[in-house]
């Protein structure tokens, strides 16, 4: 079972994804992809949010080197893609998607990010990253069982 959750910043997509992942039985692993630079309040906030929900945390700042679990919560596809593109220089969407879809689990809930609608023209590097993430999002949505867009905390099922 593969569930993709998207939405803008602060839309409530992480909270929805966590609660949704909690509904599945078995051991749950939270894959954290954001490298903590200094004090990131959001990391602390997410950590608090996960407390008591029974997640183990696996930190992956490059490829997704994790064993296996019943449920994986990948937070988030956009950070993971940035790590692949900028830290490891891997720009192939095939490789990026393979990492995600090869996760050994019964249920995967992946959170991604809507960063494409601000009308800003970015530098080439950022633009290339956005193009890659856009393609990753589309391809993941195509193979997912369910896709949700979270808007103001409401999860709208779009697939």
């Amino acid at each position: 079972m593969f569930i993709l959750v998207t939405g803008g910043s602060g839309s409530g997509k992480s909270e929805f994804a966590e609660n949704y992942a909690c509904k599945f039985k078995g051991d749950k692993v939270y894959i954290a992809t954001m490298q903590p630079f200094g004090s990131e309040d959001r990391i602390e906030r997410h950590r608090k949010m996960r407390e008591g929900k029974g997640f183990r945390t696996a930190e992956c700042y490059g490829k997704l080197d994790v064993d296996k679990a019943d449920v994986f919560l990948l937070e988030c596809v956009s950070n993971f893609t940035a790590n692949m593109v900028f830290s490891l220089g891997i720009k192939s969407t095939d490789e990026i998607i393979k990492e995600i879809l090869n996760l050994n689990c019964k249920t995967l809930v992946a959170v991604t990010n809507e960063i494409f609608s601000d009308g800003i023209e970015y530098d080439n590097e950022t633009e290339e990253y956005m193009r890659i993430l856009g393609e990753v999002n589309r391809r993941l949505a195509k193979v997912s069982d369910e896709v949700y867009e979270v808007v103001y905390g409401r999860a709208v099922r779009i697939k």
Partner: peptide, 11 residues
């Protein structure tokens, strides 16, 4: 309509 790289043309 949709964001950049959202797959509008493909759609």
């Amino acid at each position: 309509v949709g964001g950049r790289y959202s797959g509008k043309s493909e759609f």
